[in-house]
């Protein structure tokens, strides 16, 4: 359910970020990839890959690209993020940062390879990839900070401290 909510919010953000009222570099951001990263935490690697595939297809649709390369890249990204997070036992902010970096790099590389193998090319150069990495990473940082703050707010330690203060 949370994943679905996150997917909805991310899709809306993906639609809103290219708006002219938003700072132009943020148009390169792919907030939907955060859904893939989030799925890698709770689902199995294969499940994360399926989620990544769906998210990749959605990104392809939302960004007016050929439908397919993003899906393949997303599937591999979900798999890669899940495996990486399990192998290195990533948690907290590090999970988000590394997860997003892996997801973005995998998606970009796979999409490039797929399109190259079909005689096409990505719509952007390496600068676009760097911009995607930077802006999506920045959003991941925000998400990580928000999660940290939320956990701190909900922590049992804080509850105990508040109860002791009331006594």
């Amino acid at each position: 359910m949370r994943l679905l909510l996150l997917l909805l919010v991310a899709a809306l953000a993906q639609l809103a970020l290219p708006s002219v009222r938003v700072w132009a570099p943020l148009a390169a951001c792919r907030p939907l990839l955060l859904v893939t990263v989030a799925a890698a935490r709770t689902l199995t690697p294969l499940g994360a890959a399926w989620v990544g595939l769906g998210v990749g297809l959605l990104i392809d649709l939302l960004t007016d690209q050929a439908v397919g390369p993003g899906g393949i890249g997303g599937a591999l990204a979900g798999l890669a993020v899940s495996v990486t997070a399990r192998r290195f036992e990533l948690t907290g902010p590090l999970f988000w940062i590394v997860g997003v970096v892996v997801a973005v790099l995998t998606t970009e590389i796979v999409a490039t390879v797929v399109l190259f193998s079909l005689g096409g090319s990505l719509g952007h150069g390496w600068r676009g990839s760097v911009a995607t990495l930077a802006t999506t990473g920045a959003v991941a940082l925000v998400v990580a900070a928000a999660e940290r703050a939320w956990l701190a707010w909900q922590s049992p330690t804080r509850r105990r401290r508040r109860m002791l203060n009331r006594l």
């Binding site: 294969l46 890959a49 595939l53 050929a66 439908v67 397919g68 390369p69 393949i72 599937a75």
Partner: peptide, 22 residues
């Protein structure tokens, strides 16, 4: 199997991508 399904889906997407690009 799920992994085979994923692989087949990716393959199908590859073909679809090829069709779109060509």
């Amino acid at each position: 199997r799920a992994d085979v399904s994923l692989l087949l889906t990716c393959l199908a997407l590859y073909v679809a991508s090829a069709a779109q690009i060509r």
